[in-house]
Structures are given as structure tokens and as C-alpha cells.
Design a protein around this nucleic acid. Structure first.
Lengths: 199, 199
DNA sequence: ATAGTGATGTCAGTGACTGACATCGGTCAC
DNA sequence: GTGACCGATGTCAGTCACTGACATCACTAT
């Protein structure tokens, strides 16, 4: 047996989510989280940069899936389709964690500061995605725009998936949402310049 | 003459931007900002919810332009074109404030917390935009997706406009970026289902 | 053994933010 | 006019997120 109980970071993560669910993010002090995990406040801040980050640690895995899937897409795949593959692959890993995702999202939805943190994580994902597209030869600003559109699709699909228990799989919702976005943008193009489409 | 110097809020805004530029956001205390404005720390927090908000107060006007322009678009205008009109209208109001926008953005770009605040303001704009589209009869999730795509276009265009002095007008950049996004999404559609387009 | 090493604890401090109460010109009812 | 009220500001004490410096001590390598 080691000098300390194992998995201090995991204990802190679980204690924090429990307490945030019980009383709300603002009503919980870091000292309480650390106490429930059998640690001290100072140790909490050695594992997480701040009180919010404890809910977001582990996003690195998601970024890796995005980047690797885009990089692995066949050379003939269009940028938006490469992004679609990445979104579906990322969506798949939530399959087993739907209840956990729902609980976590309930905490985030109740606090503006946590929403801010979530948004900057998504923006960081979009930046990584744009970088992966650039490495495929997609020029700016197309790379950033495609990446931002992809993250927007992910956001909208995720909200639907989390909020409605009857919704289908997340990857399925992502496909539907992407088609919906394409339709919404193309409607305008068809209406404005229908004769040029097959030129 | 009144009991106090006028425009306390404006004095706080100007003092904060000056100090953030001189020494960086984190190296400035609220007490210093208030002192330069001839006020106390407590009064700062009566005008702004927190130290970051002093850079973002006034976003309400932007939201009004977005919402009003979408509401005023003719009934035959497609959702994405209504959003495009709103983005161009919003972009136009930055015309006279390019230097101010550049200075402010330099401060924001140097601090993660300020970027978080900027992102939640943009997300709030997207939500307002989606609401305006719903009031035109656009169903979900098309309304949210169109709004998010519009904000993504605005973000990308704004970054280009602020970072490159040689760039054209912001409304012009917004139009270009939107066309670029349409092209990026439609490429896939044309490649996958070219025969159905005029069906 | 002895000298690290690394995760943790202890402690003192800074600064953002809040609640309660005081101040005091200006304004309004009468 | 005068007194009641109002609203922007000041004062003060407090909480809590977060940080830096230093101590501890089981474990490990030599």
C-alpha cells in the first residue's frame, strides 16, 4: 500500500460533481471538495487550475479524436466530410456515459462561469480542428470556417441529445444537424443563383 | 453642477482600458481602476458585475441591431440571408471605431478569462439571433444552426479585420466569409448528390 | 545507509467580490 | 420653505478563490 490513497484526481473529480449537484456550483467551497476527497484545498489546486476546471479535465482525449480522425480521412474526402467523420467519432465515445454527461451538463447549465469555461474549451477544439484541416491543405479562412461550423453542429446536436431522453444516438443527431445546416445555407444559394450550379 | 462628476461608468471604462493596455489585465487591481476614475472599488462593482465586464458593457446595442435587422428583413428573405443582413449591419457600426476595437481586442487576446467572457457574449448573441429567426417561423434546429453559423462567420471575419490593417471593410469581409462557408459546405453536397439539386 | 523525488500538508498572503450601513446633494409633495 | 425621500457614492468588515514558500515523509535508486 502506498503512502496515499490512489487516484487523488479522480476522487476530487467525483467529490466536486457530487457537491455541485447537491448544492450548486457557487454554494460549494474548494475546501469542502478537498475535504470530501480526503485532501486539502492546496492539493486541489495542484491538480486543477481552478474550481471550474475540475469539471473539464479530460477534454484532451476529445481533441485527439477530432484531430486524428481528420488526419486519417482519405485524401479525396472533402473538408466538411472529414469534419463530419470527426464529429461522429467524438460523439460515439459519449455512448456509455449518457447519464454522467446529463448530470455534468445540469451543473454547467446552472452557472454562467461554467458555461464560459465550456465555450472556451469548444473554441479550443475548433482551433485544433482548423489546424488539422490546414494540415490537409485547406486554406484559411475555409479551414476556420469549416471547423467553427462543425463545432456549432456538435453543440446543437449535443444539447438535443442531453436534454431529450428519447433522442437517438449522438452520432445520428450530429449527421442530422449537419444536413440541416447544409440545407439552411444552400437554400439561399439555390434561390439566388440556381443556374450556375452545374456550370 | 451636480454632486458628482458626470459619467462615472464611462470614466471607469476608459480608466480600465488604459490600465489593461499599460500593464495587462491581471496586473491591474480594481482599486487602481477606481482610483484613476476618482471613485472607490465598491462603486466599480456597482457599475460592473466583475473586473472583466467593464470591457464588454454595451453589447446590448449589438444584440438589438442583430434582432431588429432580422425582424425587419422582407418575408421572402431566406433565414441565412436575413442573418447575413444582420451581420453586415452590425459590422457597419465598427467602421468609426476600428482603432478602439483593435486596442480592446489586444487586451482580450492576451488573457484567457477575457476570451471566455467574449465567447459567452457571442453565444448570447447567437441565442438572440436564433430567437429572432424563430419569430420569422424558422423551426429548430435550423434556427439555432443558422444563428451559430452566422456568429462563426462574424468571428472569423472580425479576427481578419482587426488583425490586418490592409483588410477591407468589416461588412465586406463578412460577405466574403459567408460565401466561403457556403462554398465549404456545399462542396460536399455537390460531390455527394449532384443529380438531386434541381429535382 | 544516504541522498534524492514527488505528492501532499501547512501557513501566510493578495485580491475579487459582497452585504450592511452611513452620507449627503437633489427633488418632490405639501 | 421644509421635511421626507431618493439615489449615487463611500466605508468597513467579511468570505473565498488562488498563490508562493517551505516542511514532511514514504518510496526509490545507488
Amino acid at each position: 500500500m502506498g503512502r496515499w490513497e490512489p487516484d487523488a484526481r479522480g476522487r476530487l473529480e467525483r467529490a466536486a460533481l457530487e457537491l455541485y449537484l447537491e448544492r450548486g456550483f457557487e454554494q460549494v467551497t474548494v475546501a469542502e471538495i478537498a475535504g470530501r476527497a480526503g485532501l486539502t484545498e492546496r492539493t486541489f489546486f495542484r491538480h486543477f487550475a481552478d474550481k471550474r476546471e475540475v469539471l473539464f479535465w479530460g477534454q484532451g482525449a476529445l481533441r485527439d479524436i477530432f484531430v486524428d480522425t481528420v488526419a486519417a480521412a482519405s485524401a479525396s474526402t472533402s473538408p466538411i466530410d472529414a469534419v463530419a467523420e470527426a464529429l461522429a467519432a467524438a460523439g460515439a465515445i459519449f455512448h456509455e456515459r449518457r447519464e454522467h454527461a446529463r448530470r455534468r451538463q445540469a451543473v454547467i447549465d446552472a452557472n454562467a462561469g461554467l458555461q464560459e469555461r465550456e465555450l472556451i474549451k469548444l473554441a479550443s477544439l475548433a482551433a485544433s480542428l482548423a489546424g488539422a484541416l490546414r494540415r490537409r491543405g485547406v486554406p484559411e479562412p475555409a479551414a476556420s470556417l469549416t471547423a467553427e461550423a462543425g463545432i456549432a453542429v456538435f453543440k446543437v446536436a449535443f444539447v438535443r441529445w442531453v436534454s431529450d431522453p428519447g433522442e437517438p444516438d449522438l452520432p445520428e443527431l450530429i449527421r442530422e444537424s449537419l444536413d440541416e445546416l447544409k440545407g439552411a445555407l444552400i437554400t439561399g444559394v439555390l434561390a439566388n443563383a440556381p443556374t450556375t450550379l452545374n456550370g
